[in-house]
């Protein structure tokens, strides 16, 4: 009986603590897709949220990590398969394709032209802004290993960390908004 009560009390304490912590004014996003349009949408939402004074944490995983590769950098010590992956996947954000109407690259080129005309910032510009306003980028280590990407081939970004799913879960649990793109 005594231990049962103790467990209940411990449970209640845990719940009270969770209530006390509550959610922060924070946006937590999984950026999974490596499509140019989806990354752009993610960055527009992220920078917008930062303008709303929200803390923003982006968890880059799988195909999206290609967007963070620096075209001028190379990873060292890659095996054959990793080298193949590296060659086949877009090397940096300027190489990303549209999720629809890519038409062998024509659609993407046209979209970039339209974006310029409408003064929509490019992904490179958005990433620079994101860094300036303190948006955190966390890269999933497991995905990086799967794709054979190395930390040294990522862009210079002021708030970049390599981490795992626990980081995302902790961030998401305390965020008011969670998104998956």
């Amino acid at each position: 009986m005594g231990t049962e009560l103790e467990t209940q009390i411990a449970d209640l304490k845990k719940q009270v603590n969770q209530l006390k912590e509550g959610t922060k004014d924070q946006l937590s996003m999984v950026v999974f897709s490596g499509d140019m349009d989806k990354i752009l949408a993610a960055l527009i939402i992220a920078t917008g949220a930062a303008a709303f004074d929200m803390k923003v944490k982006l968890f880059f995983t799988f195909w999206a990590i290609s967007a963070l590769r620096d075209p001028a950098k190379n990873g060292k010590g890659k095996n054959f398969i990793e080298k193949m992956f590296g060659m086949m996947l877009p090397k940096g954000s300027p190489k990303l394709k549209l999720s629809n109407m890519n038409m062998g690259g024509m659609g993407t080129a046209m979209m970039k032209g339209i974006m310029k005309k409408h003064k929509v910032a490019s992904i490179e510009e958005m990433l620079k802004t994101a860094g300036e306003i303190g948006i955190e980028i966390n890269i999933c280590e497991m995905s990086m290993n799967l794709m054979g990407f190395k930390k040294e081939e990522m862009i210079d970004y002021p708030h970049m960390t390599i981490c795992g799913v626990a980081t995302f879960l902790t961030d998401a649990a305390e965020s008011k908004i969670q998104l998956f793109i």
Binding site: I44, T47, G48, A50, A51, H118, K119, V120, A121, T129, I133
Partner: peptide, 12 residues
């Protein structure tokens, strides 16, 4: 001349 979220970021 700037598009969303340009004006918002400029205001911020």
């Amino acid at each position: 001349g700037t598009a969303c979220p340009g004006p918002l970021l400029a205001a911020k």
